[in-house]
């Protein structure tokens, strides 16, 4: 018996460690391929260089970093209020039957492959933006709009879960003091579910930063510093996605180096999500 317990414990430990070691392996591989190039041209030239012309050996990824942040920021600007509103609506106002329909619609949204989002954006959104707002249409704005829809399921489902997990006594307590339904939601329930909501936003952000296929189709992929939401842009992920197929030598390494930066940003966001969702403030 004793032996069996120990054995199971060891096996579980091994499995837990194997998942960590896969992460370590990926990191090791990407860093191994990418770091030498960053070293070679200098971290400053790599991170803050504005020219990306692989044929001439210039590998500056600042336009891609800026592009990634613009697109993600735009997606969050739309996705957070919309997602939070949906989550609140779902758990506070929706009658059960409508909730069922809405939830399965959101499930479907989560299951649509990103090429389809890209396709739809290309056919519907891009012409709309071009015709009504100007510019090439293949733009940060179009990308942000699509991404805001793609991150909705993440934001909605995690926020809704954290709101649902609150003890009903919070709501009863607030209402008993004469608060309206909305005051109860806004001043008690949302702050109480804050950690889960923040986590949902950061996970959504990670999803937005990581999205590749739809962005390749919609952003226009121009390698230049964007100066407005109507400009074309390229993100860190699309840079890799577009060029990996034919890159060799330094060029190939530079793409891995782009991956290193992406990896670091995502790790940072995850750490932030963990810290923020643990902290509780009144």
């Amino acid at each position: 018996m004793e032996f069996k317990e120990k054995f199971i414990e060891k096996i579980l430990l091994l499995i837990a460690f194997s998942s960590i070691s896969i992460l370590a392996l990926i990191a090791f591989f990407i860093f191994g391929e990418g770091l030498p190039l960053i070293w070679k041209i200098g971290p400053k030239a790599f991170l803050f260089g504005e020219r990306w012309v692989p044929s001439q050996g210039s590998f500056g990824i600042l336009p891609m970093i800026v592009g990634s942040f613009w697109v993600t920021f735009g997606a969050l600007l739309l996705g957070i209020p919309l997602g939070l509103a949906c989550a609140i609506f779902l758990c506070e106002w929706t009658p059960p039957w409508a909730g069922m329909i809405l939830r399965s619609a959101i499930q479907v949204l989560a299951g649509i492959p990103s090429v389809i989002y890209g396709f739809w954006g290309l056919v519907v959104l891009v012409p709309l933006v071009r015709n009504y707002l100007g510019g090439p249409g293949l733009s940060i704005l179009s990308g942000s709009l699509i991404l805001s829809i793609m991150i909705l399921p993440t934001i909605i489902s995690i926020s809704e879960d954290s709101l649902k997990a609150l003890p009903p006594s919070y709501k009863a307590g607030a209402l008993a003091l004469g608060a309206t339904h909305w005051e109860t939601i806004w001043r008690v329930l949302v702050p109480a579910a804050r950690s889960g909501i923040v986590a949902s936003i950061i996970l959504g952000m990670g999803r937005a930063l990581g999205e590749t296929m739809a962005m390749i189709m919609i952003l226009g992929n121009a390698v230049k510093m964007p100066s407005s939401f109507l400009d074309s842009a390229r993100t860190l992920t699309t840079n890799i996605g577009i060029e990996m197929g034919y890159a060799t030598g330094d060029h190939r390494q530079a793409l891995f180096a782009t991956g290193v930066i992406l990896f670091l940003i995502i790790m940072f966001l995850n750490a932030l999500a963990i810290v923020l969702s643990r902290r509780r403030v009144g």
Partner: peptide
């Protein structure tokens, strides 16, 4: 059933609502 807020904010809640 205090709210997950500070002692102060718990007591102030009803006043803030008003």
């Amino acid at each position: 059933n205090p709210f997950p807020k500070t002692v102060f904010e718990n007591v102030a809640y009803g006043l803030r609502v008003r």
